[in-house]
Simulated assay, not measured.
Amino acid sequence: MQISKVIMHRQDSDITTFVYGSNNTLRFVVTDNLGTPNIESIFISKITRVNANNSAFIQYTDNDIGFINLPKKANYQNGSTLITQLTWHGNDSKQAKLRSEYTLVGKYIIYQGSSNKCQIINKSTDSEFTNTLQNKLNHLTGQWIVRSASKSSHLENIYLEADKLANIAKHISDITNSSSSVQQIHNGTANYLRVIRELNLTDNCEIINNDSSINQELIELQDIWELDAITYDPHLDITHELVSYQKYCGQNIFTTTNDIKIEYGVIAGIHIFDINSNNSKLSNAQINNTCLDEIYRQIALRNLYGIILIDIIKDSGKTEETKLINKLTTLFKNDISYTKVLGITNGGLLELIRNKY
Protein backbone atom coordinates (compact mmCIF):
# COMPACT_ATOMS: atom_id res chain seq x y z
CA MET A 1 0.00 0.00 0.00
CA GLN A 2 1.25 3.46 -0.88
CA ILE A 3 0.12 6.69 0.72
CA SER A 4 -0.77 9.62 -1.53
CA LYS A 5 -1.90 12.26 0.96
CA VAL A 6 -1.66 12.98 4.69
CA ILE A 7 -3.60 15.70 6.52
CA MET A 8 -2.42 16.75 9.99
CA HIS A 9 -4.77 19.07 11.89
CA ARG A 10 -4.15 20.53 15.34
CA GLN A 11 -7.02 21.84 17.49
CA ASP A 12 -5.81 23.03 20.90
CA SER A 13 -3.77 20.10 22.30
CA ASP A 14 -5.33 17.46 20.02
CA ILE A 15 -3.92 16.44 16.65
CA THR A 16 -5.94 14.39 14.15
CA THR A 17 -4.21 12.83 11.16
CA PHE A 18 -5.99 11.48 8.06
CA VAL A 19 -3.99 9.10 5.86
CA TYR A 20 -5.10 8.46 2.27
CA GLY A 21 -4.11 5.71 -0.13
CA SER A 22 -4.54 5.55 -3.88
CA ASN A 23 -7.68 7.11 -5.43
CA ASN A 24 -7.88 9.38 -2.38
CA THR A 25 -9.26 6.51 -0.25
CA LEU A 26 -9.09 7.08 3.49
CA ARG A 27 -6.97 4.32 5.06
CA PHE A 28 -6.07 5.37 8.59
CA VAL A 29 -7.00 8.01 11.15
CA VAL A 30 -4.68 8.52 14.14
CA THR A 31 -4.74 10.99 17.00
CA ASP A 32 -2.24 12.61 19.35
CA ASN A 33 -2.59 14.63 22.53
CA LEU A 34 0.22 17.05 23.32
CA GLY A 35 -0.33 16.54 27.05
CA THR A 36 0.49 12.83 26.82
CA PRO A 37 4.02 11.42 26.30
CA ASN A 38 4.44 9.85 22.89
CA ILE A 39 4.97 6.13 22.49
CA GLU A 40 8.77 5.48 22.38
CA SER A 41 9.37 8.28 24.92
CA ILE A 42 12.32 7.59 27.23
CA PHE A 43 12.44 8.22 30.98
CA ILE A 44 14.57 7.90 34.06
CA SER A 45 12.17 5.88 36.21
CA LYS A 46 12.09 4.75 39.84
CA ILE A 47 10.89 1.35 40.96
CA THR A 48 8.09 1.66 43.50
CA ARG A 49 7.47 -2.07 44.00
CA VAL A 50 9.26 -5.19 42.81
CA ASN A 51 6.96 -8.17 42.20
CA ALA A 52 7.76 -11.84 42.70
CA ASN A 53 7.55 -12.62 38.95
CA ASN A 54 10.48 -10.34 38.05
CA SER A 55 8.20 -7.47 37.15
CA ALA A 56 7.76 -4.13 38.88
CA PHE A 57 5.70 -1.00 39.16
CA ILE A 58 7.64 2.13 38.31
CA GLN A 59 7.17 5.87 38.55
CA TYR A 60 8.13 7.38 35.20
CA THR A 61 6.80 10.94 35.65
CA ASP A 62 5.84 12.94 38.71
CA ASN A 63 2.24 11.73 38.37
CA ASP A 64 2.39 8.47 36.40
CA ILE A 65 2.96 4.86 37.47
CA GLY A 66 3.56 2.08 34.94
CA PHE A 67 4.36 -1.61 34.73
CA ILE A 68 7.59 -3.19 33.53
CA ASN A 69 9.09 -6.65 33.09
CA LEU A 70 12.58 -6.44 34.56
CA PRO A 71 15.63 -7.87 32.77
CA LYS A 72 16.46 -11.45 33.74
CA LYS A 73 18.98 -11.81 36.57
CA ALA A 74 18.68 -8.07 37.30
CA ASN A 75 19.05 -7.11 40.94
CA TYR A 76 16.65 -4.22 41.29
CA GLN A 77 15.07 -3.13 44.57
CA ASN A 78 12.37 -0.68 45.58
CA GLY A 79 13.78 2.78 44.96
CA SER A 80 16.19 1.70 42.20
CA THR A 81 16.29 3.87 39.08
CA LEU A 82 16.60 2.71 35.49
CA ILE A 83 16.13 3.95 31.95
CA THR A 84 12.76 2.95 30.48
CA GLN A 85 10.83 3.41 27.26
CA LEU A 86 7.07 3.77 26.95
CA THR A 87 5.44 1.03 24.84
CA TRP A 88 1.75 1.43 25.76
CA HIS A 89 -0.20 4.27 27.36
CA GLY A 90 -2.53 2.03 29.34
CA ASN A 91 -6.26 2.60 29.78
CA ASP A 92 -8.86 3.06 32.49
CA SER A 93 -8.26 -0.43 33.90
CA LYS A 94 -4.58 -1.11 33.18
CA GLN A 95 -1.43 0.87 33.78
CA ALA A 96 1.01 1.96 31.11
CA LYS A 97 3.67 -0.50 29.99
CA LEU A 98 7.35 0.28 29.63
CA ARG A 99 10.51 -1.67 28.79
CA SER A 100 13.93 -1.50 30.38
CA GLU A 101 15.97 -0.94 27.24
CA TYR A 102 15.36 1.65 24.58
CA THR A 103 15.64 1.82 20.80
CA LEU A 104 15.58 4.85 18.52
CA VAL A 105 13.59 4.05 15.41
CA GLY A 106 14.14 5.81 12.10
CA LYS A 107 12.62 5.29 8.68
CA TYR A 108 15.71 3.51 7.40
CA ILE A 109 17.75 2.47 10.42
CA ILE A 110 17.30 1.69 14.13
CA TYR A 111 19.68 2.48 16.98
CA GLN A 112 19.51 -0.69 19.09
CA GLY A 113 21.85 0.17 21.97
CA SER A 114 25.32 1.22 23.00
CA SER A 115 28.51 -0.57 21.99
CA ASN A 116 32.22 0.26 21.95
CA LYS A 117 32.22 -0.12 18.16
CA CYS A 118 29.84 0.13 15.22
CA GLN A 119 27.83 -3.07 14.78
CA ILE A 120 25.42 -3.20 11.84
CA ILE A 121 22.78 -5.86 11.30
CA ASN A 122 21.48 -5.92 7.75
CA LYS A 123 19.35 -8.76 6.39
CA SER A 124 19.89 -7.59 2.82
CA THR A 125 21.69 -10.06 0.55
CA ASP A 126 23.49 -7.13 -1.08
CA SER A 127 26.94 -7.50 0.47
CA GLU A 128 28.27 -4.39 -1.28
CA PHE A 129 25.46 -2.34 0.27
CA THR A 130 26.26 -3.73 3.73
CA ASN A 131 30.01 -3.13 3.39
CA THR A 132 29.46 0.43 2.18
CA LEU A 133 27.22 1.11 5.18
CA GLN A 134 29.75 -0.36 7.60
CA ASN A 135 32.55 1.81 6.25
CA LYS A 136 30.48 4.98 6.18
CA LEU A 137 28.98 4.53 9.67
CA ASN A 138 32.10 3.11 11.30
CA HIS A 139 32.62 6.30 13.33
CA LEU A 140 29.21 5.87 15.01
CA THR A 141 29.54 3.46 17.91
CA GLY A 142 26.45 1.46 18.78
CA GLN A 143 24.32 -1.40 17.56
CA TRP A 144 22.38 -0.62 14.40
CA ILE A 145 19.66 -2.47 12.50
CA VAL A 146 19.03 -1.57 8.88
CA ARG A 147 15.29 -1.65 8.21
CA SER A 148 13.95 -3.92 5.49
CA ALA A 149 12.64 -1.01 3.42
CA SER A 150 16.16 0.41 3.06
CA LYS A 151 17.89 0.06 -0.29
CA SER A 152 21.23 1.08 -1.74
CA SER A 153 19.49 4.14 -3.19
CA HIS A 154 18.82 5.29 0.38
CA LEU A 155 22.49 5.38 1.43
CA GLU A 156 22.64 9.15 1.89
CA ASN A 157 19.33 9.11 3.80
CA ILE A 158 20.67 6.37 6.10
CA TYR A 159 23.85 8.35 6.82
CA LEU A 160 21.85 11.45 7.75
CA GLU A 161 19.37 9.51 9.88
CA ALA A 162 22.08 7.55 11.70
CA ASP A 163 23.86 10.79 12.61
CA LYS A 164 20.58 12.21 13.93
CA LEU A 165 19.86 9.11 16.05
CA ALA A 166 23.45 8.97 17.33
CA ASN A 167 23.14 12.56 18.57
CA ILE A 168 19.91 11.68 20.39
CA ALA A 169 21.59 8.65 22.00
CA LYS A 170 24.48 10.85 23.15
CA HIS A 171 22.05 13.37 24.62
CA ILE A 172 20.29 10.58 26.54
CA SER A 173 23.62 9.26 27.80
CA ASP A 174 24.75 12.72 28.96
CA ILE A 175 21.55 13.21 30.97
CA THR A 176 21.60 9.76 32.60
CA ASN A 177 25.25 10.20 33.56
CA SER A 178 24.51 13.46 35.34
CA SER A 179 21.09 12.81 36.93
CA SER A 180 19.09 10.04 38.58
CA SER A 181 15.87 11.93 39.25
CA VAL A 182 12.59 10.78 37.69
CA GLN A 183 12.11 12.65 34.42
CA GLN A 184 11.36 12.35 30.74
CA ILE A 185 14.64 12.56 28.83
CA HIS A 186 13.45 12.03 25.25
CA ASN A 187 10.09 12.62 23.61
CA GLY A 188 9.17 9.71 21.34
CA THR A 189 7.84 10.05 17.82
CA ALA A 190 4.27 11.36 17.58
CA ASN A 191 1.69 9.29 15.73
CA TYR A 192 1.40 11.89 12.96
CA LEU A 193 5.09 11.33 12.21
CA ARG A 194 5.06 7.58 12.81
CA VAL A 195 2.55 7.03 10.00
CA ILE A 196 4.82 8.64 7.42
CA ARG A 197 7.83 6.88 8.93
CA GLU A 198 6.26 3.42 8.70
CA LEU A 199 4.26 3.64 5.45
CA ASN A 200 5.38 3.86 1.83
CA LEU A 201 4.72 7.27 0.34
CA THR A 202 4.06 7.88 -3.33
CA ASP A 203 6.26 10.31 -5.24
CA ASN A 204 4.97 13.80 -4.46
CA CYS A 205 2.83 12.55 -1.58
CA GLU A 206 1.09 15.67 -0.28
CA ILE A 207 1.43 16.38 3.43
CA ILE A 208 -0.83 19.19 4.63
CA ASN A 209 -0.77 20.66 8.15
CA ASN A 210 -2.08 23.69 10.03
CA ASP A 211 0.46 24.03 12.83
CA SER A 212 3.82 25.81 12.68
CA SER A 213 5.51 23.40 15.12
CA ILE A 214 4.37 20.35 13.13
CA ASN A 215 5.44 22.05 9.92
CA GLN A 216 8.91 22.69 11.35
CA GLU A 217 9.26 19.03 12.31
CA LEU A 218 8.33 18.01 8.77
CA ILE A 219 10.83 20.44 7.24
CA GLU A 220 13.61 19.06 9.46
CA LEU A 221 12.79 15.54 8.22
CA GLN A 222 12.15 16.54 4.61
CA ASP A 223 15.53 15.55 3.17
CA ILE A 224 16.02 12.41 5.27
CA TRP A 225 12.54 10.98 4.70
CA GLU A 226 12.14 12.37 1.16
CA LEU A 227 9.00 14.38 1.90
CA ASP A 228 8.46 16.07 -1.45
CA ALA A 229 5.30 18.13 -0.96
CA ILE A 230 4.75 19.81 2.43
CA THR A 231 1.97 22.41 2.64
CA TYR A 232 1.43 24.66 5.66
CA ASP A 233 -2.10 26.06 5.82
CA PRO A 234 -2.98 27.75 9.13
CA HIS A 235 -6.62 28.05 7.98
CA LEU A 236 -6.98 24.35 7.16
CA ASP A 237 -10.59 23.22 7.68
CA ILE A 238 -11.24 19.51 8.22
CA THR A 239 -14.90 19.77 9.21
CA HIS A 240 -16.00 17.67 6.24
CA GLU A 241 -13.41 14.96 6.94
CA LEU A 242 -14.31 14.79 10.63
CA VAL A 243 -18.07 14.62 10.02
CA SER A 244 -17.65 11.91 7.36
CA TYR A 245 -15.32 9.89 9.58
CA GLN A 246 -17.57 10.14 12.64
CA LYS A 247 -20.56 9.09 10.54
CA TYR A 248 -18.56 6.16 9.18
CA CYS A 249 -17.53 4.96 12.65
CA GLY A 250 -21.09 5.35 13.90
CA GLN A 251 -22.33 2.62 11.57
CA ASN A 252 -22.43 -0.96 12.84
CA ILE A 253 -23.80 -2.60 9.69
CA PHE A 254 -22.06 -2.21 6.34
CA THR A 255 -22.24 -3.88 2.95
CA THR A 256 -19.51 -5.18 0.63
CA THR A 257 -19.44 -4.61 -3.12
CA ASN A 258 -21.09 -8.03 -3.50
CA ASP A 259 -24.01 -7.00 -1.24
CA ILE A 260 -22.84 -9.12 1.69
CA LYS A 261 -23.76 -7.57 5.03
CA ILE A 262 -21.28 -7.43 7.90
CA GLU A 263 -22.32 -6.45 11.40
CA TYR A 264 -19.89 -4.98 13.93
CA GLY A 265 -20.31 -4.86 17.70
CA VAL A 266 -18.42 -4.87 20.99
CA ILE A 267 -19.15 -7.32 23.82
CA ALA A 268 -17.17 -7.11 27.08
CA GLY A 269 -14.41 -5.20 25.30
CA ILE A 270 -14.09 -7.79 22.50
CA HIS A 271 -14.67 -6.59 18.94
CA ILE A 272 -16.85 -8.90 16.87
CA PHE A 273 -17.56 -8.93 13.11
CA ASP A 274 -20.46 -11.13 11.98
CA ILE A 275 -20.77 -12.03 8.30
CA ASN A 276 -24.36 -12.32 7.05
CA SER A 277 -24.65 -14.36 3.84
CA ASN A 278 -28.43 -14.78 3.57
CA ASN A 279 -28.79 -13.00 0.24
CA SER A 280 -25.50 -13.98 -1.37
CA LYS A 281 -25.16 -16.45 -4.22
CA LEU A 282 -21.41 -16.86 -3.64
CA SER A 283 -19.88 -19.95 -2.10
CA ASN A 284 -18.94 -19.90 1.60
CA ALA A 285 -15.26 -19.62 0.69
CA GLN A 286 -15.94 -16.69 -1.68
CA ILE A 287 -18.04 -14.89 0.92
CA ASN A 288 -15.37 -15.20 3.60
CA ASN A 289 -12.61 -14.14 1.23
CA THR A 290 -14.57 -11.11 0.02
CA CYS A 291 -15.45 -9.96 3.52
CA LEU A 292 -11.89 -10.04 4.88
CA ASP A 293 -10.87 -7.07 2.72
CA GLU A 294 -13.70 -4.93 4.10
CA ILE A 295 -13.20 -6.13 7.68
CA TYR A 296 -9.50 -5.26 7.52
CA ARG A 297 -10.45 -1.79 6.26
CA GLN A 298 -12.92 -1.36 9.12
CA ILE A 299 -10.37 -2.44 11.74
CA ALA A 300 -7.71 -0.11 10.37
CA LEU A 301 -9.99 2.91 9.97
CA ARG A 302 -11.59 2.53 13.39
CA ASN A 303 -8.13 1.86 14.86
CA LEU A 304 -9.50 -1.09 16.83
CA TYR A 305 -7.21 -2.86 19.26
CA GLY A 306 -7.33 -5.82 21.63
CA ILE A 307 -9.11 -9.08 20.85
CA ILE A 308 -11.00 -9.14 17.55
CA LEU A 309 -13.23 -12.03 16.47
CA ILE A 310 -14.61 -12.63 12.97
CA ASP A 311 -17.63 -14.93 12.72
CA ILE A 312 -16.83 -16.45 9.34
CA ILE A 313 -19.17 -18.69 7.35
CA LYS A 314 -18.67 -22.23 8.64
CA ASP A 315 -18.05 -25.48 6.75
CA SER A 316 -15.43 -23.97 4.48
CA GLY A 317 -12.97 -26.77 5.19
CA LYS A 318 -9.51 -26.74 6.72
CA THR A 319 -7.83 -25.77 3.45
CA GLU A 320 -10.05 -22.71 3.06
CA GLU A 321 -9.58 -21.76 6.71
CA THR A 322 -5.81 -21.80 6.21
CA LYS A 323 -6.22 -19.57 3.15
CA LEU A 324 -8.27 -17.11 5.22
CA ILE A 325 -5.62 -16.99 7.93
CA ASN A 326 -2.89 -16.40 5.35
CA LYS A 327 -4.89 -13.69 3.59
CA LEU A 328 -5.63 -11.83 6.82
CA THR A 329 -1.96 -12.05 7.80
CA THR A 330 -1.01 -10.57 4.43
CA LEU A 331 -3.55 -7.76 4.75
CA PHE A 332 -2.18 -6.70 8.12
CA LYS A 333 1.33 -6.41 6.72
CA ASN A 334 0.09 -3.08 5.36
CA ASP A 335 -1.14 -1.98 8.79
CA ILE A 336 0.31 0.78 10.96
CA SER A 337 0.02 -1.37 14.08
CA TYR A 338 1.27 -4.85 14.93
CA THR A 339 -1.43 -7.52 14.60
CA LYS A 340 -1.15 -11.22 15.35
CA VAL A 341 -3.61 -13.56 13.63
CA LEU A 342 -4.14 -16.39 16.11
CA GLY A 343 -6.21 -18.71 13.90
CA ILE A 344 -9.60 -20.39 14.15
CA THR A 345 -11.08 -20.95 17.62
CA ASN A 346 -12.89 -24.14 18.67
CA GLY A 347 -16.12 -22.24 18.04
CA GLY A 348 -15.15 -21.49 14.44
CA LEU A 349 -14.27 -17.82 14.95
CA LEU A 350 -11.26 -16.24 13.28
CA GLU A 351 -9.31 -14.58 16.12
CA LEU A 352 -6.65 -11.89 16.09
CA ILE A 353 -5.06 -9.44 18.50
CA ARG A 354 -4.14 -5.92 17.39
CA ASN A 355 -1.95 -3.51 19.31
CA LYS A 356 -3.16 0.00 19.99
CA TYR A 357 -1.56 2.61 17.75
Rank of each mutant, 00 (worst) to 15 (best):
S178H: 15
S178V: 12
S178D: 11
S179D: 13
S179H: 10
S180F: 14
S181N: 15
V182I: 09
V182E: 04
V182K: 05
Q183K: 12
Q183I: 01
Q184I: 02
Q184L: 10
I185E: 07
I185V: 08
H186K: 11
N187V: 13
N187C: 09
N187S: 11
G188P: 09
G188D: 06
G188C: 08
T189K: 11
A190F: 06
N191M: 12
N191A: 15
N191P: 12
N191Q: 14
Y192K: 03
R194K: 15
V195E: 01
V195Y: 05
V195Q: 08
R197A: 03
E198K: 09
L199A: 08
L199C: 08
N200T: 10
N200A: 04
N200I: 03
L201S: 04
L201C: 08
L201M: 09
L201T: 04
L201Y: 00
T202H: 08
T202V: 06
T202I: 10
D203K: 14
D203P: 13
D203C: 06
N204M: 13
E206P: 08
E206F: 00
E206N: 04
I208F: 00
I208A: 01
N209V: 06
N209H: 08
N210C: 04
S212F: 07
S213E: 12
I214M: 05
I214D: 09
I214C: 10
N215V: 03
N215A: 10
N215Y: 10
Q216I: 08
Q216G: 05
E217F: 01
L218V: 00
L218R: 00
I219K: 11
E220S: 15
E220F: 10
L221I: 10
Q222A: 08
Q222V: 06
I224M: 05
I224V: 15
I224R: 05
W225R: 03
E226P: 00
E226N: 10
E226Y: 03
E226G: 07
L227R: 05
L227G: 02
A229M: 11
I230P: 01
T231K: 09
Y232E: 09
D233Y: 00
P234T: 00
P234A: 00
P234M: 05
H235E: 09
L236N: 01
T239R: 11
T239D: 11
T239H: 12
H240Y: 12
H240G: 02
H240F: 12
E241M: 07
E241T: 07
L242H: 09
L242S: 07
V243S: 13
V243D: 15
Y245L: 10
K247S: 13
